[in-house]
Nucleic acid binder design. Structure first.
Length: 430
DNA sequence: TCTGGGGTCCTAGGACCC
DNA sequence: TCTGGGGTCCTAGGACCC
């Protein structure tokens, strides 16, 4: 008599191809087949490329746009500033579509989600193609899907689906025999494994671990001693053990950061005050959305390490007397910190505010920086400000310190319209 | 002229305690 | 003169991710 086998876990990872570039193409169908790139904030670096751009400009990823612009435009590349509101809205549609195919979905990043496929009595490859087709129809996004017995293996499968043409965008590692799987793993570089970056790759090569199969067969205990618990877990996951569970709960953030390069160098305290106030308000609003309160505020300002002048990064943190989510209190604390780290004569390029040690409950307000408003009053005020800003756009209501002219704001001259979140831009859909 | 932003987790080492 | 060993907490920095 044989005992019933416990179900082996199966995970899928669905990942949109060249996500930002694909989002732009959805609303500009005439760009199909043309090279498209999306630039980072301030139109600084290339952060996404369509496959046509990749083919022609492979080496341009993460390079400064001013260096590659001429060559890119010569081959007819269309460039966009990043439009995060649009990408966020597209990401939501993508996830909603995936939920039709699995009851358990973990949103891992803006363009990637894990799905639990354990116990599904279907040919996974066929099912994967069905998902891929539906996402394309419902959202316009091209995606790839990988299946594996652990999240690390699903991630690796997704890599194969994307990079190896034979899979047609869907790779199911669970259907391979052990020799077939090992043959495939032996052909993959270890940096393709989730959690192995440049440094670890170099150190692993030095001890003879040169491909994924060798990493899979490495002794977990020795890996732990030499490389730490994270890599040990990775080795076990490569062997099909589940060490990373599907995490459907969005983890409560421990910190919220708002920072950005300025549109141009700033040296006056007044300009910096406006920028830091903006970031304080922005971070506070994002924190309130998560229902959290901050115990500490951190501020930094720095010039560019690429400048000739010596690199300066002023940074300071202050613990608050009690947890708060009030924009005014956080802004006051941030401006107080700014005063402490500001040094005249430095041409600052970047700065920001981080709210730290976040907790779910606010506390009794005590005196700090002369704060004196009552809790409930503050709560109502914050709620109202957030509502107005959500309806009419961020910045409709803001603290006076943010200033009216925002010269320090980043440049986004190539930004596409807000097709999905701004009524005024709806008619721009072609 | 122009070089992203936002996170998480782990580790090593120092300070301090008994 | 001689100066142990074990524990905790905190911080800075490293490494990784998208």
């Amino acid at each position: 008599m044989s005992l019933p086998q416990p179900l082996k876990s199966v995970y899928a990872l669905a990942d949109a191809n060249s996500f930002y570039a694909s989002c732009e193409k959805v609303f500009r169908p005439e760009l199909e087949g043309k090279p498209v790139v999306v630039l980072s904030n301030n139109d600084g670096c290339v952060i996404a490329q369509s496959k046509e751009a990749k083919a022609a400009l492979a080496l341009y990823m993460c390079r400064p746009w001013f260096e590659v612009k001429e060559a890119a435009e010569k081959i007819g590349t269309i460039a966009f500033s990043s439009n995060y509101e649009l990408y966020g809205a597209m990401s939501n549609r993508f996830v909603q579509t995936l939920r039709h195919f699995s009851p358990r979905v973990e949103v891992y990043s803006i363009d990637e989600s894990f799905m639990d496929m354990t116990g599904l009595r279907r040919d996974l490859s066929v099912y994967g193609h069905e998902i891929k087709h539906t996402v394309r129809q419902w959202t316009g996004l091209p995606i790839c899907i990988g299946f594996g017995h652990s999240k690390t293996l699903a991630k690796l499968a997704n890599h194969c689906a994307k990079k190896q043409p034979g899979w047609d965008g869907v790779c199911d590692l669970t259907s391979l025999s052990v020799p077939e799987l090992d043959h495939l793993l032996a052909s993959l570089e270890i940096s393709t494994v989730w959690g192995v970056g440049k440094r670890l790759e170099r150190r692993l090569h030095a001890v003879g671990v040169t491909n994924v199969l060798r990493l899979k067969h490495a002794d977990p205990k020795r890996i732990r001693d030499k490389f730490g618990v994270l890599l040990e877990r990775t080795v076990r996951e490569l062997n099909g053990e589940v060490w990373l569970e599907l995490d459907q709960m969005v983890p409560e953030a421990n910190q919220v950061m708002s920072s950005r390069s300025f549109g141009h160098r700033l040296d006056s305290l007044t300009d910096l005050q406006a920028a830091i106030s903006f970031h304080a308000g922005n971070a506070a609003e994002r924190m309130r959305k998560k229902g959290l309160y901050a115990n500490a505020v951190y501020v930094f300002i720095q010039n560019s390490p690429h400048d000739e002048a010596p690199y300066y990064c002023g940074q300071q943190m202050i613990a608050l007397p009690s947890p708060t989510n009030s924009t005014q209190q956080i802004t006051k604390a941030a401006l107080w910190l700014l005063n402490k780290v500001y040094q005249p004569g430095v041409y600052y390029l970047k700065g920001g505010v981080m709210l730290m040690e976040l907790v779910a409950e606010g506390g009794q307000q005590r005196e700090l920086f002369g704060f004196s408003q009552q809790d409930s009053k503050n709560h109502r005020l914050m709620g109202m400000i957030d509502k107005v800003n959500a309806k009419y756009g961020r910045g409709t209501v803001k603290t006076a310190a943010e200033g009216v002219r925002q010269d320090w704001q980043m440049r986004r001259v190539l930004k596409s319209p807000g097709y999905l979140h701004q009524w005024k831009d709806l008619l721009k859909v072609r």
